[in-house]
Structure formats: structure tokens, C-alpha cells
Design a protein around this nucleic acid. Structure first.
Lengths: 352, 352
DNA sequence: TGGCGACTTGAAAACGTTTACTTCTTCGAG
DNA sequence: CTCGAAGAAGTAAACGTTTTCAAGTCGCCA
């Protein structure tokens, strides 16, 4: 088999075999070909064999575009993620992919960025390109997008966040409760001067819930919550800066909640740079329990979320809905605080 | 606007507006509608306005499936990655996505796993589903797949690896040369007892090139290369085990090349666990200079590869080929050794 | 004034499927 | 022996576009 050169006309632009070609070769009608392939029982065995043989001989493989047009089903579902190069989001995407291949679907992946002003644009594009269903990371707060999917009746699911009242089903976790757990962990250890580094709140229900939980927790105990924000597009650089701002606002800080593991990664590195010992000088927690959280020095106390599982769940739910009309239900997954060595009791006060 | 309930028949299964609806409303033929939308200059301005108005009123958006069928162009290209939840691969995917949205394409993403026996299956699926072009991570060594893309004339590109002789264009780096650089860096520092932790070689041109380079380098200096392999599916767990195996085979090791940053991550953690100081007891290098390599303690000496850029380059190349028929050329990107604190001169020998 | 070209538009034929209908056997029951 | 039902195959009509081709209008020049 000699590989064909760029301009190889020996194979005369060999256009792919269609159902007609197979039909002709097998001496049957195209309808029979289609039936032999899709509903084999509906065609006499001998004829079926004939068709299958012809199909194989011609290397026929059904053209999904034609099929999709006629069936009005593409077996494509689209996923919308804020970012791909991220240890959390890519995990969700993995879960989605897992489920998709299992059901012989294929996935459009689209990166929306954190600015959900263009969420609508991306979603629209995916639908227009033929996605039958949509999986969106985080709560959808864009009315236009909500309109789009309900009007056009596009099965849509969000993943990662769970909020009780939602027009569209959410497969996720309770960010509020989870953050309360983390905060209370620190409080129970005896910390009173606690801060949080959060991502931007605008259009981000996760960060909203988490800062809210943090504030509520501290207020309940009569403590003053301290929050700094990082620009999520440059979490690393800004995590360090945020930590510095916090320290300068309150130098006697003993504990810090980072609203994403990746923020904690840079915070822990910055602590090292500043000569702050974790957890002796500063207890640190992350969120998501991303793969490398346990490899840090010290290993990071974090909150584990079943990211892959949620992605998988979302995808199968949507597929089941598409295939069997099953209703899509929200689901709230349990989370778990993973206690590692980045948290400890506060160092006993030196003086008063 | 009240959100429609699951069984809301008030909107009578409102099927999307088609070109026919727009035509009727504007009082023109469907051909004119199509023209007004695609080649505006070909239709009288007043009429064009009329059509556009009708389209907007009906919320018409062209059905890409019908379009794709007729045009035999889907504006979809597929990417095949070994894994998604990985700081390197996800970077490549990001680059691809960047370029895709820029050109109003959309991407199928498919995870093939490291076992390239099913590479063919996945690629076939993508093509069948309508992908016009394929981007594959790493060299394609599967003859069936090669056959598939050449016979069906599917523009295909590989990304990350560059090898001079290749049937299909490769956008990548020279793994052999890069590893030589890293190895020589260690040699120049004075190390003589150097080992490598590599991924499995089977079907993985990157690891093959790297182990080869390592062996060549050491042999040239009359040194004995020591190599252990990790199962790539469980890099973390196995990175630690591999390190232990190496130490037990040769306890006086002073330097270790890890063939992927993620391997180095677990190796560095394992060193900590074993009480080995990096770089005093053991110099360590990674490969890929993934985002968090610089946040480790100590920060990891690694080899930076332009992963996003390569992904972007691959996608634009393939799109340009599709749109303008431009030939696709291979490209070899420069890499750079990023010197950080995980490497140092070997500790002076204690005795002889 | 006749005719030729340039411009616009519409009718209809694809693109590759699936599927509702029709037609034709065949077979069993009455 | 006949009639109807069941089974199997074919015909043709979709699905929503784009695009070829033909036709019509208009203006301009000879």
C-alpha cells in the first residue's frame, strides 16, 4: 500500500460511498439498505447479508450529517466550560466525555471564558451547529440564554453548582454548605482571624455562595470576615497579590480559605516566599481537592467534589432524556472535607 | 415571561423557523433568502432588507446540518487527545479551541486514552460524525488510521511531536533534542549517576525519543543510563514507586530526569516523604513546564513547550487548508530549558 | 427600434438519509 | 378456493440548505 501523494489522481477524487452505491451493488433499493443497517429484523436474512457484504466491500459508513438532517437527531451534545486548562474544569469535561463515548455520542466543547456575557453566543453557536443538548458549567443567570433553551426546547443541564430553586436542572454540590463546613473546621480549630480569597463574584454563583457562607459563619460568631478577590484570568499572579493585601490589612491573620485549589497553590507558594510557615503561621484550605492538592508541601486541606462523576451524570441524564424522554432531575452530590496538613490550631498567642 | 413547564402546549411544539418561513414572510423565494444571508451583494438592497427583517422577526437562524449536507462542509474539526484532565493536554486543547472560535468553527473533542489501539475507532467516529479535519496528539503510528485519512482525504495534523519524516504534517517540538538539552544540563552540572523515569514506550513517540536521547547522551560519555517506567494511567502512584525502584537499584543516584512534569510532581513529593532533599540529594527535572511546575517546592527545572501555541497553529493550519486550499506544512517549535531550583551541582562525594 | 448584456429573481435539483405509503407475495383460516 | 393479514421490498417524500439554470427585466448602444 503506497501512501497517496497530495496530488494523486489515480484514485479519482473517490467520493465516499453512499447508500445508493450500496443499494446498487447489492441489487436492492436504498430503503432496504437503510433497513438492513438500522432495523435488521425488518429485512429477510439472506438479503440482509447481501447488503452488509456490499456495504463492507464498499467501505460504506453512514453519513451522519444526512442522517441527522432526516432524523433531526445529531447525537451531539455540547459542553460549555469557563476554561479548559484547569484541573477542575477539565475533570468535569472528562466525565462528560466518558458518558458520551459510552452512548456513542460525540461532544462539542466550547470555552466560554469566565465572562458570561458571551455565554449566550457560545451556546447559540453550539445549538446552531446541531448540538441536541447542552451542559453548562455553573448556574445560568443569563435570561437570553434561558429563553433560548426553553423556547427551542434544548435539553440543558448545569453542572457543578446545585441551587434548590432553578428553572433548569442542576447537577452539582451545595457550595454554601460546603464552605460552611470548611469555615467551621477552622473555627473549631480555634481560629478567629480568618480571611478568604475569592474569585470575582459577578456572574459566578459558586463564589457568591462561598463568600456568603463565609460571611454568615463569621458573623454568627461575632467575627469580622475579611475577603479579597482575585482576577480569575490570572489566578496565579493575583493569588500572591491578594495574600499580600490581606496580610497588610491584617497582619495577625491565622487562617485563610482559598475558594479554589488553584488559588491555594499560589498562596502556599507565596507564603513560602514570604517566610510564612503553613500551617504554623497560617492555616490554609482549598476547594475542589484537585489532583495535585495532595502533592503540595504541606498537602492541602481541601473539599473534595466528585467532578468527574458530576460530568458523567449530567451527560447520561441528558442522553437518557433525549433517547427515552426521561425527565431530567437535579442532583445534589455530597462533598467531603479532606483534612491534610495545611491546617492546624493557631499558634498560641504570644502575648494578650 | 413565564418559564414554560415541561408539558407546556401553549407553544405548539414550535419547530424552528426555516428558510421557507422566512421566504414566505418576506414574500420571496427561498433562494433569495439564502442569497440575502450568504451573498448579500447578490440581492437588491430593499429586498435584502425585507428578508433580513423577516429573518429577525422569526428568530431565524440557519440550520447548520442542512447547510453542511448541501455544502459538504461542516466547519467542525475533531481533536483527539490521550486524556483531558492533564495540565499539558488541556493546554493543547485550549489552543485549538482558541483558533476554532476565531474562525467560527466548532470542535469535537474525543479522548482516546493512551492506548492507541482505539485511536482508529475514535478518529473514525469523528470523521463519520462530520469532522472535516483531524488534530491528533502525537505521532500516528496506526496504519489503518493513516489509511483512513488519506483515502478519505481528511486533512489531518498531529500536534506536539515533530519528526522529520512523516506522511502527515506534524506541528511540534523535537523531543530528542530537547531531552538531550536537559540531560546535558545535568551532565554539565557534574552529575554522573543519572536516571530517567519515562512513561510506557509502546505507541508513544515522545517517550521513545526521550529515552533514546537520554541513552545516547549517557553512552557518549561512557555512563550507564538507568530507566524506570510508569504506567501512565496512574502516573502519580507509580511515579513514587518508580522512584523507589530506582533508589533501590542505585542508591547513590544524584539526578533524575522525569519525562513529564506530572511525574516530577509525584517524584518530588516522594522525595520529601523519603527525606531526600531536592536538589541537594537529588536534582530533578521535568518536561513541559506545566503551569504549576513553578509553584512546587523547590520550583521545578523543566522544559517549556509552547503547547497552546502549537494547538492554535494546528487548528489554523487545518482551517486555512480547508478554506483556501493552502498546503499544510510541518512546523518544529523551539523549546527552552527553564532553570529553577530543583537542579544543582551534585553534593561533593563524601569519600572516594 | 432591436438586441445584447448585466442584474435579479425563482424553480428545481441536489446533498445522504430515513420512513410513510404502496405494492406484491405468501400463507393460513374459513 | 377465497379473502385477509402479515411480511418484505420498493417508491417517493421528506429533512433544511445551497446553487445551477432558466427566465425575466432593464438599460444601453448601435
Amino acid at each position: 500500500m503506497t501512501p497517496s501523494r497530495p496530488t494523486d489522481n489515480s484514485t479519482p477524487k473517490r467520493t465516499k460511498a453512499t447508500v445508493h452505491d450500496v443499494a446498487k451493488r447489492a441489487g436492492v433499493s436504498i430503503a432496504t439498505v437503510s433497513r438492513a443497517l438500522n432495523t435488521p429484523d425488518a429485512v429477510r436474512p439472506e438479503l440482509r447479508e447481501e447488503v452488509l457484504k456490499a456495504a463492507k466491500a464498499l467501505g460504506y459508513t453512514t453519513n451522519s450529517v444526512g442522517k441527522a438532517l432526516r432524523r433531526r437527531r445529531s447525537q451531539v451534545i455540547g459542553t460549555l466550560l469557563p476554561r479548559l486548562a484547569d484541573p477542575l474544569f477539565s475533570l468535569v469535561a472528562s466525565g462528560v466525555q466518558d458518558a458520551l463515548v459510552e452512548h456513542d455520542y460525540v461532544g462539542f466543547l466550547e470555552i466560554s471564558g469566565f465572562d458570561n456575557r458571551n455565554l449566550y453566543t457560545h451556546a447559540h453557536k453550539l445549538i446552531q451547529k446541531g448540538a441536541e443538548g447542552l451542559i453548562v458549567f455553573g448556574r445560568i443567570d443569563d435570561d437570553d440564554l434561558l429563553d433560548l433553551v426553553t423556547k427551542q426546547n434544548i435539553p440543558t443541564l448545569t453542572v457543578y453548582s446545585y441551587l434548590a430553586a432553578s428553572e433548569i436542572p442542576m447537577i452539582g454540590i451545595d457550595n454554601y454548605a460546603a464552605t460552611r463546613q470548611l469555615t467551621e473546621l477552622l473555627l473549631d480549630l480555634g481560629h478567629t482571624r480568618i480571611a478568604m480569597i475569592s474569585g470575582p463574584l459577578a456572574g459566578n454563583d459558586r463564589q457568591q455562595s462561598r463568600t456568603q457562607a463565609f460571611q454568615d459563619c463569621l458573623h454568627e460568631r461575632g467575627l469580622e470576615p475579611l475577603i479579597e478577590h482575585v482576577d480569575v484570568e490570572h489566578e496565579r499572579a493575583n493569588g500572591a497579590a491578594a495574600l499580600q493585601r490581606l496580610i497588610s490589612r491584617r497582619s495577625d491573620l491565622t487562617a485563610l480559605l482559598c475558594n479554589r485549589d488553584v488559588i491555594a497553590f499560589s498562596a502556599i507558594a507565596e507564603c513560602r516566599r514570604m517566610g510564612l510557615s503553613v500551617p504554623d503561621d497560617l492555616s490554609l484550605t482549598g476547594f475542589d481537592d484537585v489532583e495535585y492538592a495532595s502533592l503540595l508541601d504541606p498537602p492541602l486541606t481541601s473539599l473534595s467534589v466528585p467532578a468527574i462523576e458530576m460530568g458523567r451524570h449530567a451527560a447520561t441524564t441528558i442522553i437518557r432524556h433525549l433517547e427515552s424522554g426521561d425527565a431530567m432531575h437535579s442532583a445534589c452530590y455530597d462533598t467531603e472535607v479532606i483534612l491534610r496538613r495545611s491546617t492546624a490550631r493557631p499558634r498560641p498567642a504570644r502575648r494578650g
